[in-house]
């Protein structure tokens, strides 16, 4: 069966940080998706020129309403337009869902994976947030720990929601690591997440833990290698990397 292109309409835009926005799109006929999957977005100009990019879905399956969270990359052809140029009511085209590996759902793996470690670098948090939200909406108590590396406090995507869910949801932990500027009163000076530090923030390796690591290539390589050195099996680590535009 061929994946179809769906007409989509922007129904809401939420600014997440100065350079990141969440786009809420209405997509009639959307077949549904799993947390962690992504979509292809196609933009077409008036003269027929078109281009496509992939974006992770930020929310679990809510029928015909999808969310993607996009970071505007300075010299990007598409992302600055999506973050700043697209207006509520504008049409785009979507195709998907794409990707069946970097997925977690509170239903599909019950009993197989008992604890979920999420490791995010920057906007790599987006597909992991779909997992956090899916767990919340399902009322799941599967232990889930998000280790989220960001440059500064102002760069935290979904900051308020993560703060709230970490307080409300049993078994959800959110650990922020600041690389350039730590918040006032933080006991940890700003700096990169080292392999040793990740080993202390992650659960010790165990058969029931699966790790999902998402972010820029260098971050994912370092984090995945750190987990392997801490004793995680390769097969227990799923990764998703993104390069620049």
């Amino acid at each position: 069966m061929r994946l179809s292109w769906y007409p989509a309409t922007l129904v809401e835009r939420r600014a997440e940080t100065p350079t990141v926005a969440t786009l809420v799109l209405r997509v009639p006929g959307w077949p549904g998706h799993l947390p962690g999957q992504h979509v292809d977005v196609r933009l077409t100009a008036e003269d027929g020129y078109s281009t496509q990019r992939s974006y992770s879905l930020a929310a679990p399956d809510h029928g015909a309403v999808l969310e993607i969270t996009v970071q505007a990359l300075g010299d990007g052809e598409v992302s600055p337009f999506l973050v700043e140029g697209l207006v509520v009511g504008d049409p785009v085209e979507l195709r998907g869902p794409v990707g069946g590996w970097f997925v977690w759902s509170p239903v599909s793996v019950a009993g197989l994976v008992d604890r979920v470690l999420l490791v995010a670098g920057g906007s790599g948090v987006v597909p992991l947030m779909a997992m956090v939200r899916a767990r919340h909406e399902a009322g799941s108590t599967v232990p889930m720990r998000l280790v989220y590396s960001v440059r500064t406090p102002a760069d935290v995507i979904y900051a308020d929601e993560l703060d709230r869910l970490a307080k409300e949801d049993d078994g959800l932990e959110v650990l922020l690591v600041h690389t350039r500027e730590a918040p006032p009163g933080s006991g940890r000076p700003a700096g990169r997440l080292s392999a040793d530090e990740l080993a202390t923030l992650a659960w010790p390796p165990a058969d029931d833990v699966r790790a999902y690591v998402c972010g820029p290539t260098a971050f994912v390589d370092a984090a995945a290698a750190g987990l392997v050195r801490a004793g995680y099996h390769d097969a227990a680590i799923r990764t998703e990397r993104f390069g620049g535009e």
Partner: peptide, 13 residues
């Protein structure tokens, strides 16, 4: 041709 998104010009080379 796909659905036109108003204001999108893109970059051609």
């Amino acid at each position: 041709m796909g659905i036109v998104t108003p204001g999108f010009r893109g970059r051609r080379s």
